[in-house]
Design a protein around this nucleic acid. Sequence first.
DNA 1: AAACTACTTGGCAATATCGCCAAGCAGATG
DNA 2: CATCTGCTTGGCGATATTGCCAAGTAGTTT
Lengths: 111, 111
Amino acid sequence: MTGTLPTPISTETIARRVAVIKALAHPSRMLIAETLMKGEKCVCDLQALVGADMSTVSKHLTLMRSAGVLTCEKRGLNIYYRLACTCLGSFLRCLDELAPDSEACGTNCCD
Amino acid sequence: MTGTLPTPISTETIARRVAVIKALAHPSRMLIAETLMKGEKCVCDLQALVGADMSTVSKHLTLMRSAGVLTCEKRGLNIYYRLACTCLGSFLRCLDELAPDSEACGTNCCD
DNA sequence: AAACTACTTGGCAATATCGCCAAGCAGATG
DNA sequence: CATCTGCTTGGCGATATTGCCAAGTAGTTT
């Protein structure tokens, strides 16, 4: 169990994680994720929320779905999106506690 | 149509979260975060790990520190970086369970 | 103090992401 | 069937990210 183990994480795992993380790395997509934590919404609802062109919102949703963050279901004329990533809420709340650090250790110290 | 409720999350909160998420949204930075979960490392260690130019690694680290994901401390000739975001581990493990979804609901269905 | 070490910063080209418009498509409705 | 609705896709310019080289800095050693 102890000792020096070679990096036990594969490039594929890293890539998959990055794809999911990137699916959240945009203000509109973060807002969508936050909103969907309260329940499913159709694209038109999310468009109104985000305030961008519907095609833009649709592309955001496609990206998030491809990454596995969202799932969708068609009912009647609308397509309803919902969160697939249940662990997101607690993580985001944790992030909100995190303070940005402007202090450096090297040459770029400010005081 | 669902009820119209005013968005209870501020633009600033969204922006802060996105900054943190972006700090993880790159293969090298994800690998750095994963590695630092096991303990602090100096920049040269991380350079060897990532396999990029030291200046590149340094910029990644600066970005992560600015977002609040890392902290650093200078000891002797080296600068040691460590993870500041304690909730990252459980979130990443959760992400690893998440399956990417290639099935769509609209016109882009494949089968 | 000159040279060295460990790292950061500036600059710039290559690449990726973003967002709008226009066009397309499936299902519902007239 | 023709049209309308809700959404997706293609295309493309605008903007942001990435990574290397070169140059700079603070502390260390000789």
